[in-house]
Each structure stands twice: as structure tokens, then as C-alpha cells.
């Protein structure tokens, strides 16, 4: 049976993880390669690396990092942040990324989604949507959720699917950082309307939140950052718990 996926997200700046982590056994808590390898060993189903820098020099650092991760980690990983061209994607895939994620650049230039899907195949094109509830409507935001667009979230999700996106990474800016649970209703609506997988992100604070997002929220995957980094929730325990709740999980022997 196809399982639901648990995905830790690592924020990267200058080739280092940004948010602090609580892995006392890490030689270097800021090393994304080592952290990624630990998550993979613990049973994470995928990894997402989000580069929050964008200058040319820093891109080179990112490519080098992607190469190291690909060398070390034997599960799929996605790289996002500052990607806006076929050349950007080509460089990341050639360095060993399995998927790339685009966000603001897709909003700015929706044709980019078609072009990337055509060039590299839908399977490696993730479109991230940052959404916020404004005046009774779910509106797509860019620039880390600060800048509203004209786009309604559900319509945009359908559009990027039609343009060839392979997955949607849906982050609710309303729940992000609250630890009060995922945006269940919105996730269910997007996942119900889209025929491509939806990764839910933003708001995970407890194991029960993951149950909610996989059942009522109909998400295909759940993504979180700090709760994993600070070991508030450990992946093996989370997957055991979800399994016991009847949610299909990959077990790693």
C-alpha cells in the first residue's frame, strides 16, 4: 500500500542549516549533510532543503552542498529556494537533487512550470504554495508569505497541476509556526481537488496533528521543521504512532 510520507525540512543559508537543532549527538549541528543522513536513518521518507539565500556565490555553495547530500543520503530529496530558470534546475538536478521546488518564480512566470515539466518531467517539479487567509479567502503569497498576490489558492493549485507540476507543497502561513496543527480544511480542499500529491506544511506541533492532516486533511505527505530539529517529535516514534492509528507508514527494518 502506498504510504503517507513524513518529510523534515532543513533551512539552509551559506550551506549551513539555519535554525538551531537539538541533536546532541551531532558533531556539527549546522551541517545539513549530517543532519539529513540522520533523518534518513531514522526513517524520514524524503528530505526538503530550502535555501534561503540567493546570491551567485551562495548558489555555488548550494550546488556543492546538494552534491554532498546526494552522495550521502539514499532517500529522495527536494531542493528549493531562489530557483527561477531551466539553468538553475539543470544545475541542481545534475548535482544530484531528485526534485526541485519553485514558488515565487512560478507566480511571476507561470509558463516556467510548463517549461520545467517539459524539460525535466513532472516527477521532479514541486510547486510550493504559501497561502494566507485574507478577507474570507485563501490567497497565494510570495516572499516568504509577506507579499499577497491576486491568486486564489485553490485556482492556483489547479493551474499548476494543469501546467505540469508533479506535487504541491502547501504551506499555510496562518498555521506556520503556531504548533496548533496543520490547516486541515484547506489541505483537504486542495488535496481533494488536485490529482497530484499534496505535501502539507505549517503548524505541526503534535503527533495527533499528523493524524488529522492525513485523515481529515487528505494530505499525501506532512512536512515539518523545528519540531523534528528540536526533537519535540522524533520520527521513529511518530511513524510508530501513525501506524498504530491505521495510517499507512513505511517501516524500516
Amino acid at each position: 500500500m502506498l504510504t503517507k510520507r513524513i518529510i523534515p525540512c532543513l533551512d539552509i543559508k551559506d550551506g549551513r542549516t539555519v535554525k538551531g537543532t537539538n541533536f546532541v549527538n551531532l558533531r556539527d549541528a549546522g551541517d545539513p549533510v549530517e543532519l539529513g543522513a540522520i533523518y534518513a536513518r531514522e526513517g524520514a521518507d524524503e528530505l526538503v532543503f530550502l535555501d534561503i539565500t540567493a546570491t551567485v556565490d551562495e548558489r555555488k555553495t548550494l550546488i556543492e552542498l546538494v552534491r554532498k547530500v546526494a552522495h550521502t543520503v539514499n532517500i529522495p530529496f527536494t531542493v528549493g529556494g531562489g530557483i527561477s530558470s531551466i539553468a538553475d534546475v539543470s544545475a541542481l538536478l545534475n548535482a544530484g537533487a531528485d526534485k526541485i521546488s519553485i514558488n515565487s518564480s512560478a507566480v511571476r512566470n507561470p509558463d516556467l512550470v510548463d517549461e520545467l515539466a517539459q524539460e525535466f518531467g513532472s516527477q521532479c517539479i514541486v510547486v510550493a504554495i504559501d497561502t494566507r487567509f485574507v478577507d474570507g479567502e485563501h490567497i497565494v503569497h510570495t516572499h516568504g508569505g509577506r507579499r499577497p498576490t491576486e491568486l486564489r489558492t485553490l485556482a492556483w493549485a489547479k493551474e499548476i497541476e494543469n501546467r505540469g507540476a508533479g506535487e504541491i507543497l502547501l504551506t499555510s502561513m496562518d498555521t506556520d509556526g503556531t504548533k496548533a496543527g496543520f490547516a486541515i480544511e484547506l489541505t483537504a480542499r486542495i488535496s481533494g481537488a488536485a490529482n497530484i500529491p499534496v505535501i502539507a506544511s505549517g503548524g505541526a506541533g503534535s503527533m495527533a496533528h499528523f493524524v488529522d492532516v492525513f485523515t481529515t486533511g487528505k494530505a499525501d505527505a506532512g512536512l515539518a521543521a523545528s519540531i523534528f530539529h528540536f526533537k519535540e517529535i522524533e520520527i521513529p516514534a511518530l511513524k510508530r504512532f501513525l501506524s498504530q492509528q491505521g495510517i499507512p507508514m513505511r517501516t524500516t527494518a
Binding site: 504510504t3 497530484i196 505527505a221
Partner: peptide, 29 residues
């Protein structure tokens, strides 16, 4: 949903390639 994306398990395995694997192991599709 299509594509079939994620980890799913193998059943009724035969032959040398799946030797030594636990029952119904998960692989990425």
C-alpha cells in the same frame, strides 16, 4: 493520484535481486 508517488511495498518477490530483503519491503516509486 497519478503519478503514483512515494513509498509502496513489494510482494510475491522471486529471484536473486530481492534476496535477503525483509517481507514486503518498501521502495520509492
Amino acid at each position: 493520484k497519478v503519478p503514483h508517488t512515494g513509498w509502496n511495498n513489494l510482494t510475491t518477490m522471486q529471484g536473486p535481486l530481492t534476496e535477503g530483503l525483509a517481507e514486503n519491503p518498501y521502495v520509492y516509486f
